[in-house]
Design a protein around this nucleic acid. Sequence first.
DNA 1: TTGATTCAGGACATGCTCATCCTTTACAAA
DNA 2: TTTGTAAAGGATGAGCATGTCCTGAATCAA
Lengths: 152, 152
Amino acid sequence: MILSRTSQYAIQALIYVTTRPRGEPVLNREIAEHLGVPAAYLAKIMQTLCRSHLLDSFRGRLGGFCLHENAEKTDLMQILLLTEGAGFTDTCLLGLKVCSDETACPMHSRWKPIKEKVVLLLKEQTLEKLALAVQSGKYRITDLPHAAMNPP
Amino acid sequence: MILSRTSQYAIQALIYVTTRPRGEPVLNREIAEHLGVPAAYLAKIMQTLCRSHLLDSFRGRLGGFCLHENAEKTDLMQILLLTEGAGFTDTCLLGLKVCSDETACPMHSRWKPIKEKVVLLLKEQTLEKLALAVQSGKYRITDLPHAAMNPP
DNA sequence: TTGATTCAGGACATGCTCATCCTTTACAAA
DNA sequence: TTTGTAAAGGATGAGCATGTCCTGAATCAA
C-alpha cells in the first residue's frame, strides 16, 4: 500500500496543525519547513483541504491555517478519500476493472480480508489520536535530521 | 496497495503462460490480445522477465515465450521484487525515510502487522497455484467483455 | 539463399504526479 | 491610506510510468 506524496503530505500537515494550539493560525511556510516538504506544493494541498472543510484559511497578517470545527475527529479514511479519490480501497490487485465476490481474480478471496483490515485501521485513526501520539514524543511525522540518518 | 501496471501485466502474463502447455512457445501477440493489454508495452515487460530468468524466449517461426525451468514455483513476492524494486514492502505509510521499531511514525505499530500479512500472502501464491485456479474456470486474469460490463 | 516470422532494443510520444513561479486578492497594523 | 504579509490561483516545467514505432537480429521453411 503506497500512498501518493500528496496524501502523505496532507496527512502529515493535518497532524501537525492538530498538534498546535487551536485558534492560532499556522503558516504554510512553518508547516513546510517543519515537515521538510516543498512549500509551494504544500500550499496547493492545503487549498484543497480548505475546500474540503478540514481546514480554515486566513489571509494577510496573522493569517495561516486552522483546523476546522471538529475536524480533529476526522479519520485517515476520510482524508484519503479526498486525496486518493473514491474507491481507492476497492481496487483489484491484478488491476481487473471488475473483481467482486461473484466474478474475481485468483487473488480476490485472500486479498479482500486484508483490504478490510486496512480500511478498519484507517477509520479508527483520527487526527486527534495521531496528534496525541506525536505530542507524547514517542512518534514523529518528520524525517530524522541528516546527522541521525548518516551517523559518522 | 496499488501495484504498477507493469507489475499487473507481468503477473497476468506469467499466469497466462503457466496455464498453457509447457514447451510450446506462446506468442507475445497472443498474450497481449488475450489479456487486452498493449502488445508493444507488454513486449518490454516480457523482455525483463526473460532477463530475470522467469521466461525463455525464442525468435523466428515457432518462436515465442516459455516458462523457464521450475519457474512455476515462483511466488508473487519474487515477481514484485523484480517489477516494483527491492524494499517495496518496507515503506512507511506516511512516507518517512526511516520508520522502524526504534523510531517510527504514529501508524507504524499498527501498519507493520498488515504489511507482514501481505508479504505472507504474496509468498504463498505461486504461479502454479494461480494458474490452476484460473484453469478451474472459477477465476480470471482478464477483464470481462464489454457486454458483460455494460449490460443493456 | 530468400522470405516470413518473432523477439530485441533504441528512439520517441503521451499523460500524470510532483513541483515551481508569478500575479492577484484579502487582511491587519501603522 | 499605505504598507507588509499570507493565502488563492493560474501558468509552466521536471520526471517518471506508460505506451508507440521502427529497425535490427535470430530462426525456420521453402
